[in-house]
Design a binder for these strands. Structure first.
Lengths: 158, 158
DNA sequence: TTGATGACTGTACCAATTGCTCAGTCTCGC
DNA sequence: GCGAGACTGAGCAATTGGTACAGTCATCAA
């Protein structure tokens, strides 16, 4: 079993109150410290906990504009373009998606003019046919995993 | 100035090797511990560092399917639908985007059948006209902020 | 029934880290 | 010249993380 009831409680605590010590987590969960530590090790080894890097806000870093740029690529150039994307610092993440040779990239920019620059740069990449941009206007649901974890916890309990 | 040269060096360290003590960071940067601590406090207060929660992998949590679901909403129901999205645990994040009453949501699912269930749930929300899904096939550029930080650092130095 | 395996507990130890404070130095702008 | 703000280096008590150990308990196969 990948994650059992105790694991979901651990993950919930981790998400709700990071910056708490392992000792304190153990106290809150009513579990021995060794147990918790073993669980954490296992969760990390299993790839559930992928990293501990603090999250930064591109907006606070002077890049308040967020856009999703679809990139249409000519046949057979998907890998090539995909790799080239890594060289664009404004691209925060990118996926190849269903629908022919399409890529979906998440782009941040200082302003709309900067966004245009980035899109121009993308169009100039060899293998790119055209792009289509959707600018994020408002964050309706901020990135979160807690509801998913709780949902998993609920179905695991049953 | 929001982030100067030292700040970018700090952020780079933070991203490159988390799980290092503040003391060690200070040593690596050749800076007094107090200084570093003050900088970290300031970066956090400024909203640059938004959180310290460890990052989890939905895939390792049994949700390997990632999709971007566009939702078209009838006029005037944007807020309503936007709030309803928070009630769907499979929705990891959501934005309202350019183009009429459109929402873009990031959805994770156990498999394609589960994805279909989620989309069905979304369609059933009052105010939703139709949806369009793009399933992520491969992660071409994994989520990253380091290149952006370095880019900012380069322009700040000049 | 017996024996083994794995998970959890409670305790203990130590080096290192944290949060905090303080006085002294340096640089900048008015 | 002078004050404000930032940085330094030092020190302190309290806590932490890493690790180890023996004992308990439940499960499972022989």
């Amino acid at each position: 079993m990948p994650v059992d009831a105790l694991d979901t409680r651990i993950l919930r605590l981790l998400l709700e109150q990071p910056r708490t010590s392992v000792r304190e987590y153990a106290r809150l969960l009513g579990v021995a410290r060794g147990t918790l530590q073993a669980r954490l090790d296992r969760l990390e080894r299993a790839g559930v906990i992928t990293g501990t890097a603090p999250s930064l806000s591109p907006a606070a870093l002077g890049h308040p504009v967020l856009a999703f740029v679809h990139i249409e690529v000519t046949q057979g150039h998907l890998d090539e373009v995909g790799e080239a994307l890594a060289g664009v610092p404004e691209i925060v993440e990118a996926f190849s998606i269903t629908g022919g040779g399409d890529l979906l990239t998440r782009v941040v920019a200082r302003d709309n003019a900067h966004l245009e620059d980035v899109v121009q740069k993308l169009i100039s990449l060899p293998g790119v046919v055209r792009t289509r941009s959707e600018v994020a206007l408002r964050e309706r649901v901020p990135h979160r995993l807690l509801p998913l974890v709780e949902s998993i916890g609920r179905s695991a309990r049953s």
